[in-house]
């Protein structure tokens, strides 16, 4: 290994980009679309200066993959790297998805649309 025991060397494209993101309960949140870099003390990443991964960007990139262009960073939901617990074949978070802004669309659809359909509030997986 090129690393010591306390570090694991990974390549972004090979090991992280496109991997599924699971929340603390194992529910899928999305896929890793991009990784935001930051410098020390919250500054922006600069060439040659120490930099680390600040956040996972998950988001609606299907349209841009099909039609080109890119979604502005401000429109891509971010998940702080601090919330990442494990990295394996998937990226596992330590927080439940209810606490993430990244899934607000799903939450909005559930609360505003699905909940209004008769029977929509029934959770089929809930214990009786």
């Amino acid at each position: 290994m090129t690393s010591d025991a306390r570090e694991r060397i990974v390549d972004a494209r090979l090991h992280l980009l496109g991997r599924q993101v699971l929340d603390a309960d194992g529910e899928p949140v999305g896929a890793v679309d991009d990784l935001a870099l930051a410098g020390p003390e919250g500054a922006g990443a600069e060439a040659g200066r120490e930099a680390h991964i600040d956040a996972i960007l998950v988001g609606p990139v299907l349209a841009t993959r099909l039609f080109g262009g890119r979604v502005p960073d401000s429109r891509l939901p971010r998940i702080a790297w601090d919330d990442v617990g494990h990295v394996g074949t998937a990226v596992e978070l330590t927080v439940p998805s209810d606490r993430l802004d990244a899934v607000w669309v799903e939450r909005w659809v559930r609360d505003r649309l699905i909940a209004r359909i008769p029977g929509g509030r029934h959770d089929p997986e809930a214990e009786e």
């Binding site: 870099l37 930099a51 790297w81 990295v87």
Partner: peptide
């Protein structure tokens, strides 16, 4: 070979540069 590690920070080490594109 798949590993599943509890991870902390992720530091940028470097860039892989290929002469013939990705």
């Amino acid at each position: 070979h798949a590993r599943r590690d509890a991870v902390g920070g992720a530091r940028l080490v470097g860039l892989l540069v290929g002469p013939r594109g990705a």
